Computed example of a mutant assay.
Amino acid sequence: MASDDEQHVDHLQDVLYIIRTLERDSQDDEVDQRLKEEAVLGLLALSGSSEGHELITSHLDVLAVLSRARQGVGNVAKAAWDILVNLSAGTTKGGCDCENVLKLMDLNRIVKELKDRREFSDKASAVLSNLSRNERGCAHVLDALMSSTGLGDNTPSGNEVQQGKGANLKWVVDLLCLANSPHSPSLASPVSTRPPLPLLGALLGNLTQNPAAQQALLDGNGLLLLRLLPFLSYQSCSSLRLGIISAIRNLCLEHSRHSLLLSNELDLLPRLLLPLAGPDEFTEEENEGLPLDLQFLPPEKQREADPSGRRDLLEALTLLCATATGRRTVRDANTYLILRQLHSWEADEQAKQVCEALIQILIGDEPSPDMDNLLTVPIPPDIQSQLAANQEQ
């Protein structure tokens, strides 16, 4: 009996033969289309397993056929896009197949599919989101996105970003707001009838691990970031909301821009605190010490439901406390009150630990002047080893 690997190879060669034959010679369109659908669906079934994924990505000729098939129409194109989504999800491990997939994905064409809101723009956003999860793929995706600017006639007016890096990701933010904000007046365009693109949140969350993306979104006095802030409390789609929370957490890593992030113009601090606040009752004096948006919250007020979202929000606040100025600003907002109530409510152990550490920063003694920026303090090698060992446990 043939082994599973031999059967997979035979299946792959059969499917490839059918697709190539149909590409080369088309006699009966109806029969050809049906055979092509069966062939691509066979590849789709293979791509759903780790063995099939490895098999497909090791054959550049199959990837080339898929790249052409996705440019078609109907079920063949849809199945080809689904295969690419599966293959791109496998590159998150950073394995040897990543280069093969990236080589034949034609990222510029995928970006165009997304930017033009074509039929498979949701599949394109999934592919880009998957590919950008690891460092190597993120760099490739970011280059492709930043080399494509503007949404043409569908670009929302207002909030123009100054010329610079920010303009290169402006169209991504434009598209995210256009596709996922049903009450936006810019949705008068026919493009508003197309499905939302919630994975753009995850895409931005992945991209902002790269310093170039951080700088791009903070260019132009943070106007792009300002447009993303409402999504911190966006209840219509959790994946979109969590992606934006992750992105803003990553932006807080850019400590040189903390003065901008904590400015009155962006008003980021209350936006980070609001999802962490519950229907807690405070004295009138305590309420008056809170930012206006957090005063006298209604009894039905709920906290961020996802533990990972709460952790990211707490980590963002912790990052903003890296400098003496940041710690003072966070303290002055009566943040401790919100954290105290959150800590007593929190059931997720990891989120609780992050909350405890942040509280200690706020109520503890200030570090010595030579440690003003905690993000730039060198960590001794023995402490680094201990932290790495703790993280692995």
Rank of each mutant, 00 (worst) to 15 (best):
Ala2Ser: 14
Arg136Phe: 12
Ser263Pro: 01
Leu102Gly: 00
Leu272Gln: 03
Val31Gln: 15
Gly222His: 01
Leu12Cys: 05
Ala77Asp: 05
Thr193Cys: 15
Leu87Asn: 04
Pro198Trp: 02
Leu375Ile: 05
Gly42Asp: 08
Leu44Trp: 11
Gln209Lys: 12
Met1Gly: 07
Arg271Tyr: 09
Asp372Leu: 03
Ala39Thr: 06
Pro299Glu: 07
Ser192Arg: 13
Asp10Val: 13
Leu217Lys: 01
Pro182Ala: 06
Arg311His: 06
Gly278Val: 10
Ser256Asn: 12
Leu197Arg: 00
Arg68Val: 10
Leu60Arg: 15
Leu200Trp: 00
Lys112Ser: 13
Leu232Ile: 02
Met105Lys: 07
Cys98Trp: 10
Ala79Arg: 03
Ser26Lys: 10
Asn86Leu: 07
Arg109Tyr: 13
Cys96Tyr: 12
Ala2Gln: 14
Glu160Gln: 08
Ala139His: 11
Asn390Gln: 12
Asp25Val: 10
Leu187Ile: 07
Ala389Phe: 13
Leu43Thr: 01
Leu226Ile: 11
Leu175Asn: 05
Val161Pro: 02
Gln7Trp: 14
Ala139Asp: 09
Arg136Leu: 14
Arg311Cys: 02
Asp365Phe: 08
Leu251Tyr: 02
Gly243Arg: 05
Ser256Tyr: 09
Cys321Lys: 03
Lys352Ala: 11
Val9His: 12
Leu261Cys: 07
Lys93Leu: 13
Ala144Arg: 14
Val73Thr: 12
Asn390Gly: 13
Pro381Ala: 07
Leu207Ser: 05
Ala89Lys: 04
Asp97Thr: 15
Ser50Cys: 09
Thr208Tyr: 07
Leu260Pro: 05
Gly166Ala: 09
Leu114Gln: 00
Phe296Trp: 09
Leu240Glu: 01
Ser308His: 08
Asp174Met: 03
Ser47Ile: 09
Gln13Asn: 09
Thr283Lys: 02
Leu102Ile: 00
Pro190Tyr: 03
